[in-house]
Nucleic acid binder design. Structure first.
Lengths: 118, 118
DNA sequence: CAGGATCCTGTATGATACTG
DNA sequence: CAGTATCATACAGGATCCTG
């Protein structure tokens, strides 16, 4: 199905928007991670959503899935060059968001589970 | 209702995510605009969605609504300082998206109604 | 002209149980 | 351990009509 966007920003939002993708990309920024560990790192995500988002990210060329032929199964995910290039963007957005939160919710009316960068 | 985010990026996604907000902010970047003209500029948006998104943006402190007491009614929307500071972010994201599109959809499988920046 | 009120629908997200 | 299959639900987005 052909997609129609109003602008390029919407394309990026399709890539990293939604509830989980930015967090997944963030964790993969430190290097390849196995499925199980990723599930532990991304607080609150279900198995289903994790696999679903990983598939989308892979299809969009942002991450790579590597399966090792062994029992028990071992699968590792890592960022592609494109995915890596997103890290800088996310860092800028993250900083902006951090500043926004500090100025807009001084009372701590929102909770951020993970920190700015690390 | 208290919101819980995994990271700061999700906060920003809440602010500018969804189908219309980035486009609205983009147009307001050129200066104050009346509701009707905004509706013309944002291709395909319905009255309802426009008003709804404008309210959200105002509540989040990104835009300002100014109503002039006259008949017929005149209402203008403009960016706050915070909204303006978003422009730089959006520009970076936009550039990244533009590059991504060129490299990933060389055949023009997607349509971008508005252009990069202008 | 600006905006509100209803009603409707697709899709993203989730809970849970299951398989090789 | 990694991934699937079902079923359920909440919410963003939309169509349409209405008002000062």
């Amino acid at each position: 199905m052909k997609k129609i966007y109003n602008n390029q920003v919407e394309v990026v939002l399709d890539l990293i928007g939604g509830k989980w993708k930015s967090e997944i990309i963030y964790h993969l920024g430190s290097g390849p991670i196995r499925t199980g560990e990723l599930k532990r790192l991304v607080t609150g995500i279900t198995q289903k959503m994790l696999i679903e988002k990983l598939k989308e990210l892979e299809k969009d060329g942002l991450i790579i899935r590597e399966a090792y032929n062994q029992v028990p199964p071992k699968v590792e995910y890592s960022l592609t060059n494109y995915g890596s290039s997103l890290k800088e963007i996310l860092r800028v957005v993250c900083d902006w968001g951090d500043d926004y939160i500090k100025n807009t919710y001084p009372e701590g009316q929102v909770t951020i589970l993970a920190h700015k960068h690390d």
